[in-house]
Computed example of a mutant assay.
Amino acid sequence: MLIDSHCHLDFEALAADIDGVLERAAAAGVTGMVTISTYVDKFSTYAAIAERYPNVWCSVGTHPHHADEELHIQTDDLVRLSAHPRCVAIGEAGLDYFYDNAPREAQATGLHRHIAAARITGLPLVIHSRKCDDDMAAILRQETAQGTFPFLLHCFTASESLARTALDLGGYISFSGIITFRNAEEIREVAKFVPADRYLVETDAPYLAPIPHRGESNEPSFVRHTAEKVAEVRGISLEQLGAETTANFHRLFTKVGPV
């Protein structure tokens, strides 16, 4: 039993065939997934998908690429929308210095607002972090000192240092198909030491399809390949990984309910 903790069912590559996507996921042993928000102003779209399927949940948040487009979104807006019964997380929000599609100040402003919403609601903050390790670590430390909040570093591609900082602060780490790539040895090293109660798996579909599907459109059923690689790296069975990551998902995404 596996759960895809991060996908984008509203994106064109998946939206045209959601029924088929879910059927293939079920056949691969994927029992649930979270479709992740990139624009708060599109929250009704994510909520409608989650309302339609009992094993799909959604989040509410602004991707850092669009941070400057949604500076009108305040913490109160996030808290209000997150009360929807199918909304189980805040985000994704964070920092992306690789693309720098939005001014860094706007990205940081959005991240702080999302952290505040996670602290108020108790819902996990799904964090996007790319090429910003020092600033992300500093913000996480600063904000945690003001009050803890649940969070998940999704699609982990950062350094061992950021991983250890996040874990020290009580965070979780999620591995995507990138861990199957030949040049991802640093990520595989992180996957070895993350505690058994602090890691998840995801696709980030339709992006980042794992080997043997690299170059194709990704979808939740492919999370099985990521899970197999993480299990191999950790020296455990796929069954044990499924049990651990499913338990971790429910412990972090408390609004989903028990296993």
Rank of each mutant, 00 (worst) to 15 (best):
G94Q: 10
P103F: 07
C58V: 05
A67E: 05
P54T: 06
A93H: 08
H72G: 15
Q107M: 15
Q107F: 14
D77G: 02
A117I: 03
H65T: 06
L71H: 11
R86W: 08
H112I: 12
H63T: 08
L71K: 15
D100Y: 07
P103Y: 05
V79I: 14
V88P: 03
H84T: 03
R80V: 00
L95T: 08
H65C: 09
R86E: 10
L81Q: 00
R86C: 12
C87S: 03
V60P: 06
Q74I: 01
F98M: 08
Y99F: 07
S59D: 13
D77W: 02
N55Q: 12
S59K: 11
L71Q: 13
R113G: 00
A93E: 10
H112Y: 12
S82M: 07
G61R: 03
A67M: 07
A102F: 01
R80H: 01
R104K: 15
F98G: 09
G61F: 03
H72V: 08
Q107G: 14
D76A: 15
D100P: 06
G91F: 05
N101K: 13
I90N: 03
V56F: 12
D100Q: 14
N101A: 06
E105R: 10
A67Q: 06
V60H: 11
Y97E: 01
R80L: 01
I115N: 01
C87P: 02
H112N: 07
E70G: 04
A102G: 01
A108M: 13
A102R: 00
R113M: 00
A117L: 03
H63K: 08
A83M: 11
E70R: 04
R86T: 09
A89T: 01
H72T: 14
A89Y: 02
L95P: 10
T75P: 07
R113N: 00
G91E: 06
G94T: 11
I73Q: 12
I73R: 10
R80D: 01
G61S: 04
Q107S: 15
H63F: 08
L81F: 00
G94N: 09
A89V: 02
H66D: 14
A93P: 05
H112S: 10
A116F: 01
H63R: 10
G61E: 03
L95W: 07
I115W: 00
A93F: 09
R86D: 08
F98K: 09
L111F: 15
H114D: 07
H65W: 15
V88M: 05
A116H: 00
L81V: 02
A106G: 11
S59C: 12
L111W: 07
P103L: 07
E69V: 06
R80E: 02
L71V: 14
V56L: 13
V60N: 10
R104M: 04
I115M: 03
A83T: 11
V56P: 12
D76S: 14
